[in-house]
Amino acid sequence: MSTAAPSTGHPKISLKGVTKHFGPKQVLRGIDLEVQRGQSLVIIGGSGTGKSVMLKCILGLLHPTGGSIHIDGQDVTHLKGREQEQVMARMGMLFQGGALFDSLKVWENVAFGLIQGKGMQRDKARDIAMAKLAQVGLSADVGELSPAELSGGMQKRVGLARAIATDPEIIFFDEPTTGLDPIMADVINDLIVKCVRELGATTMSITHDMASARKIADRVAMIYEGRIIWHGMAGDVDHSGNDHVDQFINGRAEGPIQMQVRKL
């Protein structure tokens, strides 16, 4: 399916001591994490714990303050320009809000990485885009609409089709089910599992939706205050022996994690 990378001994994604701060605000305080080829890692954690920042560091949208990030054993921490684009070409990303280009039609959105990124002919890219739309359960006439005419669930599906259009080796999902009703959320989860399996891709998702995490994860890691505090198989998440994880997955207000809410 996906083209095999040259170095096979390395984990697909590896983070060592990654830190990131914005001015005086410390967001990541030393993240160590590995994802093996073909694995699906789900990172859980509350709002503002640094999940999105970590994802953006791996994608190269932000540069970490310290530590290193390796993809297939290649140090990508400080890549810029052409080299970064080459690494980026092997990745796909589903954004939280979809981030569809509203000046373009739906099929042009899906085909964007093929036409602009890989220089493919429009006709050929259009056929692939339509096939990818079909893969996420959308008909060809949806392809002619503009993103603003779609419902939230449909936008997510188009975002998914766009993320898998270039057959990436690594796909990132930023809160794929946020803002959807439970049924549509499950449809998206199924689609993610199906598409990822067909591509044989390695995935990293961030979410605070436990139903989604259980469905798409091989492994689960929990991030809290800019550190990974627990990491294990998806099946072990219910008996992790970690108070923070227990509190999070059961959704309790009482526990070691104190939300910063002013008491009345």
């Binding site: 953006k56 994608l59 190269g60 949208l61 684009e85 980026m88 070409a89 990745m91 796909g92 990303m93 954004f95 939280q96 809000g97 981030a99 569809l100 280009f101 509203d102 000046s103 964007f112 990485g113 602009q116 990124g117 890989k118 766009r162 270039t166």
Partner: peptide
């Protein structure tokens, strides 16, 4: 237009699509 693209992550999306 560009400001809206920035706050809705469309500019990040461009980068992830090798553009």
């Amino acid at each position: 237009e560009i400001g809206t693209m920035r706050v809705t992550e469309q500019i990040d999306a461009l980068t992830t699509l090798s553009t």
